[in-house]
Design a protein around this nucleic acid. Structure first.
Lengths: 218, 218
DNA sequence: TAGATTGTTAATCGATTAACAATC
DNA sequence: TAGATTGTTAATCGATTAACAATC
């Protein structure tokens, strides 16, 4: 029985950052790393780092630090390392095509399907993958065993596409459509809304602007 | 004196979602909306929604609800609505080009510069914008007054590009490079790491997989 | 007035961090 | 042993939510 279900969401969200730093250390030939060094490189508090790692088990040595190879393997294992995950992308617009090309030679993911509702796009080649019709989605998800999907369709289509993916067997979805998707039972959806990210930045820029209008305070 | 500096980060992160729902309501001709309806549409708890809105001031009427036009304007005002923010994009690779095209006809943002270090890309047209050389960055940021930037360069270049942007006058940066950037004084950086998002989804998919191997429990 | 809904209080929950005992 | 660093306890902090008084 693994204890993964007890890892808090905030910790899970930081694991990929830790993994990146660890792989850099492996590449650099490091054998041992302390929580202070690792926390500094990952941009977090060292107590938080030790607490996060403790959810994975005890892989450090008191008075010494963490074995780089062991810890890297452990974190990677939790994040699905060791296999190349098949991913399908729905939507071959600007974002979908960019992601297909972006992940074309990714070490941990492999784009096994790219779908679009527009017949004019079906058959074209993007990042080494041929665009398929939506009607082929279920069969390709089934034959490739893809558990992961990226949704890059207009907001109006996102919910039905996610339902379609869930029905086909996908369990985890990365949604780029500017809409809150209600996940099917047992499906994980994470949203990335680029316009909303820019609006949050505009909030801070606008705040800074009005602050300087009113003078620098104090 | 505005009270914007007191709005908690978690609330700021939800404002764009509220704004989207409000604009849909405006378009649909709604005059009044209750916290329950709005919360449902935004996918949050209604108490949380009322608390979030209370940070912006009291724009509701007890026993009635919120005036759609008034509330939409207030939220939009906080998020920099009313003007079209100039944005520069650094990096004309897959992601940078996709974002330039994606925001080409955006209501709230305008891409006023797209930069790349590769001379072979300089001069080409992407989403109505001509790719400029990095040496033009400072002048274009200054002449357009861009406070916002998107960084879509390799991880090795991200920190120096962010420093360059900060020196040119940019105050808010959306970073797509897979690295933790240390922001210059007074600069806001938000990171979007697509590979890390997929790794988090793979974590959940892997957990689900091993759970089903061990049987569905109880 | 009676019914409805906001804005806020108070309780709960989860995440963060300082501090230190355990221990290499 | 002396020095160093983990793993964990306890305190703090911020975010969430139920409940309800205020009030339209």
């Amino acid at each position: 029985m693994s204890a993964t279900s007890e890892i808090p969401p905030a910790t899970v969200g930081r694991l990929p950052g830790y993994w990146r730093v660890m792989r850099d250390l492996v590449d650099a030939g490091a054998n041992i790393v302390s929580s202070t060094e690792l926390a500094e490189a990952a941009g977090v508090n060292s107590a938080q780092l030790r607490r996060d790692l403790s959810y994975l088990g005890s892989y450090g040595t008191r008075g010494v630090g963490y074995d780089v190879a062991v810890l890297s393997e452990r974190i990677g294992h939790h994040l699905g390392g060791g296999r190349r995950w098949p991913v399908v992308i729905v939507g071959a617009g600007n974002i979908g095509r960019a992601l297909a090309r972006h992940h074309a030679d990714d070490e941990h993911f492999r784009v096994v399907g790219l779908f679009d509702a527009d017949p004019a796009l079906v058959g074209s080649l993007v990042g080494g993958v041929i665009v398929s019709a939506m009607s082929d989605l279920e069969a390709i998800v089934a034959s490739t065993g893809a558990a992961l999907a990226i949704v890059a369709v207009p907001g109006t289509e996102a919910q039905s596409v996610c339902d379609l993916l869930a029905a086909a067997g996908v369990t985890s979805i990365l949604n780029f459509a500017p809409i809150t998707v209600v996940p099917a039972e047992g499906v994980n959806v994470r949203g990335v809304d680029l316009t909303q990210e820019l609006q949050i930045l505009a909030f801070h820029a606008a705040r800074r602007r009005s602050a300087s209008e009113n003078g620098p305070g104090i």
